[in-house]
Nucleic acid binder design. Structure first.
Lengths: 338, 338
DNA sequence: CTTGGCACTCCGGCAGGAAGAGTGCCAGAG
DNA sequence: CTCTGGCACTCTTCCTGCCGGAGTGCCAAG
């Protein structure tokens, strides 16, 4: 086990490196942090930390920089979450309250996160998985053509065109609409399939084909739309990454364009609270020199989606975590109100 | 006026510079293009071209590179539009035909354009301005709460929640729905206001307040949604820009995140055909070292939206223009079919 | 108007030297 | 056993001067 002081040294190294972006040496450390020991002692500690794999030196006779493992220890044991200042909190709230619809909420959130953390922000649209049905509507566009509209309690609306196998009468349609709604409104998506299973039985044989089609489309919509959309922003902040640009930034931009990758990234974070994935802990290769801080957010007790930021492993973890957590909370509030 | 040969020299310079990214000198020119004159002659021509402002040299005794003005001349007079190869055309068509809905069409288009041109692609969602109403639906969610759903012929669906000043009966609602649709279905958005103006007169005084609210929301939706959304992709291609990265790439990324800027950019291109804006011709400062190639596309004869690419001024104009034009055509076809 | 020749300029790369920062190790003190 | 100061060593970085190459501009001749 590492002694108290060695942990303190590691913390100091991380803090200094995050601030200066330069390898940090023993002398500078003793000066900037008032460690009560001499540089020589710190050197010994550093040697020990290096043996354990927490820090490394780019070349002999250079200062040390933290490794992924070092950051991990820092995040787990040494760093708290830095709360935002109250002006910041107020700014967040004001900014988010101006949103007019769901797209706007997500858009504002992304910009806010990017600005607060000065990193790339990723916000997943509220998931349909946990949400409930507010209304289902069927519109007859033509004798054998319907439109299905699904409205969720998170304010999302999905629509599908349906080509029916046979024409369907307006009264039957109204009947179907009424029955459908009485069964599924207020219910969770996951419950819907079993709730509508026996619906066709209530109708004439002539109409059953159409009704089957409608129900199939509805269930399909519920499933398909569980695949999430997301919005990203603040990519310009990538330019602050480092000096060895093209090599670093390219794979990150590529990864960010692959929504699938990002969704997986957010999805993997199972921790109910905040998740921090550091460097190579990220599966995706392009992101192996970045860290991802993510957290679930939602209108009620349950998380309906995730949001987070992507930045260099050398990031201000306490500050970033504070911002991410705060934004998630306020977005949750906004969603609950609307 | 510039002589024929001097134009030829300019063309050669542009082509070589686009290929090599390095200033091109007189000797290399005579070798790579079989100009029938000596380097010395070319030097004289270059001096003339430089006097006219078509080319410039980074430093004394370096080769020449084209200026914005030089590219402009090249695009206007010297370059054709390079048609795509037929395998490319087939690939485009196949790729776009797999799309399942509007979002998917736009998403695929953006990826396609980015891949074909190896630059940043921007695609505007089909505009509602020119499109017509396919259906208007009113759903009673609660006694005094409605949802308005607007379906357009471009496949777009917009919805709005309406809080009514007074409860409205189901029969009145059905009546309103029927009248509304009989008047506006098939009509252009711009026509709608005058068509529905006198609708409230057909109803009882009790309901007029609510109906006014509904109509107001409808008109508002039509206007608001003229503000376009757009999708961008291929930002990773920015890393191919040049070697002086952070300075170049940052303002571009920032500009790309400002949808307003991009919309203005596309909107400014009034030319019915293809528009090419080179370097400083772009108003936005961050884009002063980029060129924008854009073109309108649409399902019928009329353009309903724009798409294009953003790349370095040093780009392959004929190839890029060819790709942009081809993609626009195929997207138009796809939209017309659906 | 074109051509070859020639002097000139400037960039880029390379070697060598000096400075600075940081390390590792050791021996001695607490 | 831990901490400390000292010292030699290692690297990187920066600056300098130097050379070669590429390209230009100008001039005089064809």
């Amino acid at each position: 086990m590492l002694s108290e002081r060695r942990l303190e040294v590691l913390r100091a190294i991380v803090q200094d490196y995050v601030g200066t972006e330069e390898p940090v040496g023993s002398k500078a450390l003793t000066e900037r942090h008032n460690l009560k020991v001499s540089p020589a002692t710190v050197r010994n500690d550093m040697a020990a930390l290096e043996d354990e794999g927490y820090i490394a030196q780019p070349h002999t006779s250079a200062g040390r920089i933290p490794t992924d493992k070092g950051y991990r220890l820092f995040v787990d044991k040494l760093a708290g979450v830095k709360p935002l200042s109250s002006p910041e909190r107020r700014a967040i709230q004001n900014f988010l309250e101006g949103a007019v619809d769901l797209d706007d909420v997500v858009g504002r959130t992304v910009r806010l996160l990017a600005q607060l953390t000065r990193q790339v922000a990723v916000v997943q649209y509220p998931s349909l998985t946990r949400s409930t049905v507010r209304h289902v509507e069927l519109l007859g566009l033509a004798p054998a053509r319907l439109m299905l509209v699904l409205i969720t309690d998170t304010g999302r609306v999905e629509q599908r065109l349906i080509d029916c196998p046979a024409p369907i009468g307006e009264t039957v349609l109204a009947d179907l609409r009424a029955r459908l709604n009485s069964r599924v409104v207020g219910e969770r998506f996951t419950e819907v399939p079993s709730l509508v299973q026996d619906l066709p039985e209530a109708f004439d044989a002539d109409d059953r084909g159409t009704i089957q089609t409608v129900l199939a489309t509805l269930l399909e919509t519920l499933v398909e739309e569980t695949e999430e959309r997301l919005m990203i922003g603040g990519t310009a902040n990538l330019t602050r990454f480092g000096h060895d640009f093209p090599l670093t930034i390219r794979p990150v931009l590529e990864a960010l364009e692959e929504q699938v990758v990002l969704l997986k990234l957010l999805g993997e974070a199972k921790d109910p609270g905040m998740t921090v994935r550091i460097g190579h802990e990220n599966q995706h290769e392009g992101l192996s020199s970045t860290s991802v801080v993510s957290v679930g957010y939602g209108s009620g007790d349950e998380a309906v989606a995730k949001l987070g930021v992507v930045g260099p492993t050398r990031m201000d973890y306490p500050g970033t975590m504070g911002a991410v957590r705060a934004v998630a909370r306020y977005v949750g509030q906004i969603l609950a109100e609307s």
